[in-house]
Simulated assay, not measured.
Amino acid sequence: MFKRIGNLIKGFLGLFIGGIEKRNPEALLDVEKENLRKQISEFNKGLATHAALVEKLISQTKKLDKQETELRAKTTANLKAGNRQAAGELAMKLQTVDKEHDEMVKQLEGAEARYKELVRARDVSVKTAKKKIEELSRNIDDMKVQKAMAELNEMASGMVTEIGGSGDTLNRLEEMVEDERNKAAGRARVARDSMDMDDINIKAAEQDALAEMALADFAAAEGIELESTEPKASEKESSTGTTKSTMGPGVSE
């Protein structure tokens, strides 16, 4: 019973954490970057320990090499001096050192090869991880762009649907505006037709006459001679002649 409840709680926590990870992929990627740095640091510590072992083997190999050289020289010297017993003991010791030296060289070669393999494995692993992180970063950026584009497309699609759905409203609004415009034009025409143009013309003539009288008074006061606004005699005759000519030869005055 409790195990099932525990599994259920774990399942809910997994879903919750998974949802957070989906909403924040950058944070998850930063965590993986930090984990990679920690792993590289720990790997380098182990690599440094192995490198120290290699250096120790190198030092021991050099020491055995030097000891072997010295023993060989001493054995040769005692043998030439006739000290066979001492030369024999030195020769036996030389064999032991030589054997130990050969084993040390093999260990050194193996440790050196292992060190190079570890370095290569580290470099390849780090390079692969970095490449994957870079790809994930680009994918996250592309995901953001695609998500933004999808949201814009969805918004545009919604706007098109809303605009298309509001066609009836726009048609009604157009009819209302047209109807009101026609009513306003009708009212303007009625008002214009209701105006008494004869009265307006009379008032306009009165205004012109008053203006002429004021102008005549001003000219008299200033001693300015005004030209008559009535047509001259020649103009009257010309006008009369033109009228007669248009009446035709068979028409009397």
Rank of each mutant, 00 (worst) to 15 (best):
T76A: 12
E55Y: 01
P231Y: 02
D193F: 03
S194K: 01
K74G: 01
G19V: 01
A129P: 08
K130S: 08
E175F: 05
L36P: 12
K3C: 14
L215E: 10
R72K: 07
F12T: 07
T240R: 11
S252P: 14
K147H: 07
E21I: 11
K74E: 13
L28R: 04
L210E: 15
A81P: 02
K183I: 15
L79T: 11
K45L: 14
Q146D: 05
V105D: 07
A191K: 00
N7L: 14
I140N: 10
T76L: 11
S238W: 08
K183H: 11
Q95L: 15
G164D: 05
A73N: 07
S245L: 12
T229W: 05
K130F: 04
A156H: 01
L108W: 06
L71R: 01
K127M: 10
A184R: 11
A113S: 15
G223F: 02
P249Y: 02
A233E: 10
H50P: 14
Y115E: 15
S137D: 12
S252W: 15
A150L: 09
D193G: 04
E206L: 13
K116T: 13
E135F: 05
S125E: 13
K236L: 13
S238A: 12
T69Y: 02
L108N: 14
L170D: 00
A52E: 14
